[in-house]
Design a protein around this nucleic acid. Structure first.
Length: 158
DNA sequence: CGAGCATCCTCAG
DNA sequence: CTGAGGATGCTCG
């Protein structure tokens, strides 16, 4: 949560206010912010921001209707590999850290670490990764699980 | 290197 | 059922 920095756009979602940051015309960062500030809003938002807001609107209306926009998340080669794998998890289903680890020939904790580092919440669906027995964590700790639960229920996950 | 992780599995009580 | 403990791969200082 960086509420002191500037965002290219803000979005009010059912799970809280989100801040968007662009990276070369693509979405580089999507993260929760404490509260919207006037200073964060520009008079003439980048056209890409308008598209992104439509994406989010469609997701929060009907989760399965979303079309993932161009993304530019910053991270290590390994993280990029994990995030690409997350994008292949279809809306409405989940995978465990262990399953992804087996697919990518790595360890489950490494998967969790890469999920925690996901700079583009919701659109890179790290919330679709759950633990073998319980739901796993979200946003670093286990104190934001209600958001993960909300997203999964919104996507009609049993 | 060593410590820290959004894990997983097994084994003892 | 619960908790402890080892194995595990990646990242950051």
């Amino acid at each position: 949560m960086h509420d002191l920095e500037l965002f290219d756009g803000v979005y009010e979602s059912p799970v809280g206010w989100l801040g968007l940051r662009l990276q070369g015309g693509k979405l580089g960062e999507l993260d929760w912010i404490e509260r919207p500030r006037k200073a964060l809003r520009k008079r003439h938002p980048h056209p890409a921001v308008r598209q992104l807001i439509q994406c989010l609107d469609s997701y929060f209306t009907t989760a399965s209707s979303i079309i993932i926009p161009p993304l530019a998340p910053a991270g290590t080669a390994f993280q990029q590999r994990v995030w690409r794998a997350l994008l292949r998890i279809p809306c409405g289903s989940v995978k465990t850290y262990g399953q992804l680890a087996a697919e990518l020939k790595t360890g489950s904790r490494a998967i969790g670490q890469a999920c925690r580092r996901n700079p583009i919440a919701i659109l890179i669906p790290c919330h679709r990764v759950v633990a073998a027995r319980d739901m796993g964590g979200y946003m670093g700790n286990t104190g934001h699980l209600h958001i993960k639960r909300w997203l999964l229920e919104h996507e009609d996950v049993c």
